[in-house]
Design a protein around this nucleic acid. Structure first.
Ligand SMILES: [Zn+2]
Ligand SMILES: [Zn+2]
Ligand SMILES: [Zn+2]
Ligand SMILES: [Zn+2]
Lengths: 141, 141
DNA sequence: TCTTTAATGAGATTGAGTCTCAAAAGTAAT
DNA sequence: ATTACTTTTGAGACTCAATCTCATTAAAGA
């Protein structure tokens, strides 16, 4: 956890922002699981944990964390943004069950390479990508 | 255009829905360009064209068109859904400039195949996928 | 301490999208 | 064509995630 404190402090310093108890509480909550939760879930978990942090601060802090690469924003197409911590910073994409909501993670070096080639062909400089497979998991099929 | 009329009629019959002037107007508007427009843009273009169709009908009809494979829904991560007609029904994914909004289309057989392999490995039955590359286009870089 | 700047929180606001329900339009049988 | 029935439409209310406002609170610096 000490490491997580330092990561946050560094990010805030880089942004010229102050280190505050609220920001630490939010970052801690996001580090607690490897789930893919939306901002409301994170907000309510914090509340439930007995801390008082406002909704506005949760949203604002998440934005800072995303901008500084501590958190990844996922857009799973259900109208709300989801977030996962990047403590284990290895890149992955997602395969989502449209029935039960189960989310698995995958990573394919070959796909990643092919993306780079596409970028080169179109003369784009890629900064991020979304790659999600939607379907029915084994249990739901 | 005659073809487009028939495509709509067939889809509506399949759904047990009636063929109405409003639904044709909406489908026509979507067929007019190969852009990637959101529902509001489509709604206002129709209004601007002198037709009176309600917002609710636009949203409802787009849903029918998507369900019946005449229109593809895109989620480009900016909080609103975008749509493109599938008259030229070849599959493609998107590469998006985060600066100027330019959207190019790409298709890579190898990526598509690798996705199938991932699905097999995770025992998912894929029904759709999102694959978008975000970055700076040549002009913006 | 005093002054200045930054962060927070409660609640208002936005905006895409959905829902409601009375009115309008379509369908089918007489 | 008239009636009886069903479907669609449209205006506006509503929802929900997310953002904004601004008065209050907390932190930093002199
Ligand atoms: Zn990837
Ligand atoms: Zn993940
Ligand atoms: Zn594809
Ligand atoms: Zn396209």
């Amino acid at each position: 956890m000490a490491t997580n404190v330092q990561l946050l402090k560094d990010a805030l310093r880089k942004e010229g922002l102050l280190y505050t108890p609220q920001r630490q509480i939010i970052w801690d909550e996001i580090c607690k699981t490897d789930d893919h939760r939306d901002a409301e879930e994170i907000y309510f978990k914090i509340k439930q944990g007995g801390h008082k942090v406002s909704r506005a601060t949760v949203y604002r802090t998440i934005d800072v964390l995303v901008k500084n690469n501590l958190v990844r924003k996922l857009e799973l197409g259900d109208g709300r943004n989801r977030y996962e911590n990047k403590l284990d910073s290895s890149h992955h994409d997602h395969i989502v069950c449209i029935q039960c909501g189960r989310i698995d993670e995958f990573m394919d070096e070959n796909i990643e390479k092919l993306q780079d080639e596409i970028a080169k062909k179109y003369q784009f400089k890629i900064v991020r990508h979304i790659h999600q497979l939607f379907g029915l998991c084994r249990d739901c099929n």
